[in-house]
């Protein structure tokens, strides 16, 4: 066990965990933040996506020791980091079915918007490659395009 310090959603936290514990389980088990989901454990599905130092990262596949001191944003902190528009759209457009994958999808989407304000379909395909077994993909794409439109409109107004 070793003491690891992280900044999670703006809060400085320290946990005592085995150094090889994946960030996913640090968040879920040790910090009690269960919004980040376990899907596959091998960086395939994206259910566990968080922002690690600002970048979309599959938290099942980074260990605690590798990221000591890092800054992490999870779905619980998304609304404070500009994701509220997305979250509202996700509800309004009834994107989710079971919803289990959607925290990861939202985190991947929010990270994409940091790179590009108006993502193309190809960019969406590449950057929001999460698995959704319920098949909400058409709605995810529609919600992303709508969000881009709203953000562009907001930007123009500002």
């Amino acid at each position: 066990m070793s003491e690891i310090t992280l900044k999670v959603n703006g809060q400085l936290l320290s946990v005592d965990v085995a150094p090889d514990t994946p960030l996913l389980w640090v968040l879920r088990d040790h910090l009690g933040m269960t919004g980040t989901k376990f899907g596959c454990g091998i960086a395939q599905c994206g259910a566990c996506t968080v922002h690690l130092n600002g970048e979309a990262t599959r938290s099942c596949s980074v260990t605690a020791e590798a990221i000591s001191g890092a800054e992490v944003v999870t779905i619980e902190g998304l609304s404070q980091t500009g994701g509220a528009v997305l979250q509202k759209l996700w509800a309004d457009m009834n994107v989710s079915q079971c919803g289990y994958c959607q925290a990861g999808v939202l985190m991947a989407t929010a990270a994409m918007f940091k790179q590009t304000a108006k993502p193309t379909d190809a960019e969406i395909d590449a950057l929001v490659s999460n698995i959704c077994r319920c098949g909400t993909y058409p709605r995810i794409r529609a919600a992303i395009h709508k969000a881009a439109g709203m953000m562009v409109a907001e930007g123009a107004a500002a």
Binding site: R28, D29, G32, M33, T34, G35, T36, K37, F38, T74, I75, E76, L78, S79, L86, Q87, K88, W90, A91, D92, M93, N94, V95, S96, G99, Y100, Q102, A103, L106
Partner: peptide, 28 residues
Amino acid sequence: SPFKLTAPAIADGSAVYGIDVKVPGMVH
């Protein structure tokens, strides 16, 4: 066609699935 009542909790990460349950004294 209102959105599902579960939708807001899903979008902010507070929705509780089986795997998210926390019970005092729980082990894994």
